[in-house]
């Protein structure tokens, strides 16, 4: 039931609204995976990043799409928690774990079940339209499931349409999807490669005159 509610909301409400209000003119959609396990790695400046990524996929792939999101933020009250878990379909991530606990356990299970994770390697939205250093969680997930392709995505303009803690203003947001990157044993090299792939996509976006 919920699965269909999620599909319907996305197809008849979220996707048309996104096209109207933020344009969603995207490139490289052919690189998106059709099935899991896979990891989508994108830059993160805004709450609409998750919606943008959900809207990129065909409706039927939605069932296996799971954004990994901060538990302290999204599970803050019952309504937000229900919506985040069932409609957005998040895997909650505890940012302050109890000692010895694997905070990525649920995300790893999802990969093992053949789902597609949406991960923001910066870990937080940060300053509008700027990229923060990547956190190691993405490498641990890739290490756990080495056959999963990691698809780099650069989201352009989301931090301007809806920056952290401010109101929404309609402005065009676009996503640039690149060719997959795969895990290899050298963690720092892997992280460099992934970050480089996202920065290459960033260079394709139109210049942003905003200061």
């Amino acid at each position: 039931m919920l699965r269909y509610l999620r599909r319907i909301l996305l197809a008849v409400l979220v996707r048309p609204m996104a096209r109207l209000l933020i344009g969603m003119h995207c490139q490289g959609l052919e690189h998106l995976p059709k099935f899991g396990p896979a990891i989508i790695a994108a830059n993160h400046n805004s709450h609409i990043d998750t919606l943008v990524l959900l809207c990129l996929f065909p409706t039927k792939t939605l069932d296996i799409l799971r954004p990994v999101a901060a538990a302290d933020h999204f599970l803050a009250n019952p309504l937000s928690s229900w919506f985040s878990r069932n409609i957005v379909g998040i895997i909650p991530l505890k940012r302050k774990p109890v000692f010895g606990e694997d905070i990525l356990a649920e995300a790893k299970d999802a990969l093992d079940e053949g789902q597609i994770l949406i991960v923001f390697p910066e870990g937080t939205r940060g300053d509008p339209e700027e990229m923060a250093p990547f956190k190691a969680g993405i490498a641990r997930l890739a290490d756990h499931c080495p056959k999963a392709p990691i698809i780099p995505v650069y989201i352009h303009g989301a931090g301007r349409a809806l920056p952290k803690g401010e109101m929404f203003v309609p402005m065009n947001v676009s996503a640039y999807v690149g060719e997959p990157v795969f895990w290899h044993e050298n963690r720092s090299l892997f992280m460099e490669e992934l970050k480089g792939a996202i920065l290459t996509l960033k260079a394709q976006a139109p210049p942003m005159h905003w200061d």
Binding site: P128, R160, P163, M167, M171, N172, H209, W210
Partner: peptide
Amino acid sequence: LSLAPTRKEDRP
């Protein structure tokens, strides 16, 4: 407005 130069303060 998505292309033209604007300032952070100008969102309203």
